[in-house]
Design a protein around this nucleic acid. Structure first.
Lengths: 339, 339
DNA sequence: CCACATTCTGACACCGGTGTCATAATGTGG
DNA sequence: CCACATTATGACACCGGTGTCAGAATGTGG
């Protein structure tokens, strides 16, 4: 019964005394095969440790039961550190995939110019999930190209021109509102914003807009001078905040476009002898695991990554099935801690 | 030139006026095809946006240019949080794979009983990387089964009985020595250890052994009473440390089996009014990103995840190629910060 | 001009499954 | 006992590439 190489369905057929066609049907539990025969085939397959060759099966059926995840990184981020928020998304996407019986191909894309998205063309995946804070404006032409090729994909965060159904994102605008309301309730109306408040980072921009507009509804105008640019790293948040301090710009609250930025900002404040939260209250965004570890622990706007992963996967699968998909906006959630 | 469905090599052949065989050869840059023909074929392939069907190609060549990563989690860990150390490994493995021209299938395995390892059997991957602190003793029988089936795989951390070449790990024993030497230098010899100092967690155990033995070489005996069990989560570290404090066990230094444990331990110490590092010095293990964010920032033993990922991938590829592979022990590195 | 090597190309079997069609075996009703 | 439906099975084409082999076209030397 020992065999060189892996067993094929012909081997099972031979030992079970049936035809290869019957083996194939029996293993997929087709109702066409006799109960007794099915049992015999399954038994033999188990004995020979037979596993269906996915390449052959995929080739014939023209689908792969696999999704591809493209993770775009800020090109400035260093090799070993990956944004923890996306890692958390990665975890939930992986789980959502396996729950749906799909495998997941993971690929990190560092260059924004020529990323690989040929997973579907090459029949390696049935669809693609795009993930990243990235400067998506650069990508629109590539996204359009994917659309033209009829590639199935969904995006986190970014909008695809004219195709809202391809996006899943947090209600960033609403998150900004939550942060503003929280600070207003605590009478902190002299606010700084650390992040990129331009349309180059659509997500950060929406957070800022929701934040600013809520203040305006309370007749408070945020000073443009109190905005400091930063990408989503601890280091960048640190330096941006330092430069505000160096320029003698005062504020009693700080809204950071992401938790990493907030953590860096707090470090800068502490170094300058500014007390958090007594002198300056800080609100972050994301609720990454570290937000609860740092001290003081970070007050932040949570994005539900578990739900986000599920929505990305289920929307993509519906898209593949050709069903209508709605634009998906996930509700953010204020987590009050000690800043 | 528009076409329903995706283009195949036959389409290219048709439009380029050559045979399908020639197309296949031309696209793989076989030296057998004429320069002029090759150019024509490449041009037409680009125009039709043709991509080789990986299923067909893999089926024929019997290899997939894909590796599978199985990530084992502590079953107690909650859904959304994944050990940041492993996430960091995941990042470096992904990068190492793509550098070698391989794709990576990622799969989280929560049950230690019946994990899926049929990626190779089903020809979906050429080899498997196993990653986890997991209680590997439970897995030995499964690992043995993989060996029997001649499945190509490498493990992080765990030993495979009689096959040291299949493991890549940090020199955990040496890491424990580093931690001990550091504390001895700072005259902190009354040490607690938080983690699992049993053979159920071979990595933690080795860290403890290196730590303990170094103290013994200096004629200092660590008290067994000062060991508290914990798995690698912040919460577990917090509770373990709290119970030490509650039992009035004194110590002036603490070695945590992982950074997450250390971060939890510091929280427990701070809550009890114990100053870090003045009253108790703390040394962690891993050097996860958060180690530098927390305050006070964490002194820890670094594991080089970039190198680890590269070694796992390159050892696995060598194994697949049938080459000899050496057991790989990576040097740990003391990172002195503020604890 | 023929023998022979070299370069290039096409025909074809093959990888290991899946789906369709034909057919054998059995049951059912008139 | 025959017409017909039902059930179970095998034969075979097919998915889209890759590798082998045969042979055409051209070049080279004697």
């Amino acid at each position: 019964m020992k065999h060189k190489g892996k067993a094929t369905s012909f081997d099972i057929a031979h030992y079970a005394g049936v035809s290869q066609s019957t083996v194939s049907r029996a293993l997929r539990n087709s109702p066409l095969v006799n109960e007794e025969t099915r049992r015999k085939v399954h038994e033999m397959a188990a004995k020979l440790n037979y596993k269906v060759d996915k390449n052959a099966s995929n080739l014939r059926t023209q689908q792969s039961s696999t999704l591809a995840l493209l993770l775009f990184e800020d090109p400035t981020t260093d090799e070993s550190q990956i944004n923890p928020f996306f890692l958390s998304m990665l975890g939930s996407i992986t789980r959502a995939c396996s729950k749906e019986g799909y495998d997941l191909l993971v690929s990190f894309q560092s260059s924004s110019q020529d990323w690989r998205a040929d997973y579907e063309d090459s029949h390696r995946a049935d669809g693609i999930i795009l993930l990243g804070y990235g400067d998506y404006l650069d990508y629109q032409s590539r996204l359009q190209q994917l659309l033209d090729q009829d590639t199935k994909f969904v995006c986190w965060g970014a909008k695809v021109d004219g195709r809202e159904d391809l996006s899943v994102s947090c209600d960033n605008y609403g998150g900004g509102q939550l942060a503003a309301k929280y600070l207003i309730e605590h009478k902190r109306t002299d606010c700084a914003f650390i992040g990129d408040a331009s349309e180059h980072s659509p997500e950060f921009f929406a957070r800022y807009e929701g934040f600013k507009n809520t203040f305006e509804q309370h007749n408070i105008t945020l000073s443009e001078r109190k905005i400091a640019n930063a990408i989503s790293t601890e280091d960048s948040g640190y330096h941006a905040t330092k430069s505000l301090i160096a320029n003698n710009i005062s504020f009693n609250a700080l809204f950071a476009a992401s938790d990493l930025i907030a953590i860096g900002a707090i470090r800068a404040l502490q170094e300058a002898g500014i007390l958090v939260p007594n002198d300056v209250r800080v609100v972050g965004f994301d609720n990454i695991p570290a937000a609860s570890y740092v001290s003081p622990s970070l007050t932040t706007i949570e994005q539900n990554t578990t739900l986000a992963g599920q929505m990305l996967v289920s929307n993509l699968l519906n898209l593949i099935k050709g069903e209508k998909v709605e634009c998906t906006l996930l509700p953010p959630n204020l987590i009050v801690r000690n800043t």
